[in-house]
Amino acid sequence: MKKILLILLLLLLSGCYDYNELNELGIVSTMFIDYKDEEFVTTLEILNTNESSKEVSYMFNGSGKTIESSINNCFSNAFLIPYFSHMYTVIISEEVAKDKLENLYDYFTRDVDYRKDFYILISNDINEIIKYEPKNKLSIGENIKKIIENSENKNAKYIVNNYREILDNYLNNNNYVLGSIQIDNDNLTLSDNFLISNNKLELKLDEKAVLFMNVLNNYSSTFQIDSKDSFDIYEYKADTKVDKNKIEVSLAGNARILNLNSEKTKIDVNINNIEKELETYVKDYFYKCLEYAKNLNKDIYNFNFLYYKYYPNSVDEDTWKTIDYDINVDLKINEKGLIFDSVGEEAYEN
């Protein structure tokens, strides 16, 4: 009897904490945050879950002194309960990126309703994206998520960090990159990468530096090198070793020939030579990326933080500039393409 009473008390006194009927939820797909006239203007894209309506999503907007108050104003007249656990992306204006990033992180870190795996992107024209009507039956947020996922798999030209990664850099006072999105030819596309330093938007990064950053952190599973020829580098591993006076960056992996220029397509071409040329090219490419950072006078690859991990007492602000770098590249071309096998000697002789 006591046991039954205990169970009943436990269940009945606790009530239905956190109970929500599914149809009453406003599932937020994307959050747009702008800063105008000393107020945050927030627009939320809510997914449409009503079968009878053809709209994919609805937009609700509100403004306020804080992000929280602007979001509350979005829902003040709505019949739905905001639900943020399925939010894919947060798109912020350049104004927010320049000056209000700390407010943004403060809000997302304090609120437990948010998952930490949504992406943050910058847009130079946030209203244009809000008004964008996708050509498929997906919401803006779902479209952006698909673009990011495709970009991660196919090339290393863009860096789109999710909130967890950003928070990690933010808490370690590291420099980090925020990607941006724009509408190009009536299509949503990823565009420039911006360097964020001291939680402020600093500058637009060169594509080559972004690629090096992606490779250095092993973010991308594959990346493409376009010298005179085109190669795809895959199954690679980049490693960074820190010595007292030297930082050693090594890259080892496999390469696939995508396209050779006309002189090399002959059958007697020596693959070892191509391999050596590729290694030299990648090595030079990486040295140029290091030079690029030195010219900017920004530790965009966070070598100082890396050095600090090993030699906390020896690091100073310019360590990353003064230290020597040694880059080793070991790539094996193991997929030559069909040209050497199927289009054989006879094909050229004829």
């Binding site: 929500n20 599914l22 149809n23 997914l47 009503n50 656990s85 399925h86 779902e142």
Partner: peptide, 14 residues
């Protein structure tokens, strides 16, 4: 609801 994939959640809700 956070434990359900979004597309499935929308499906359920519809």
């Amino acid at each position: 609801q956070e434990a359900i994939p979004t597309s499935l959640l929308i499906n359920f809700s519809e």
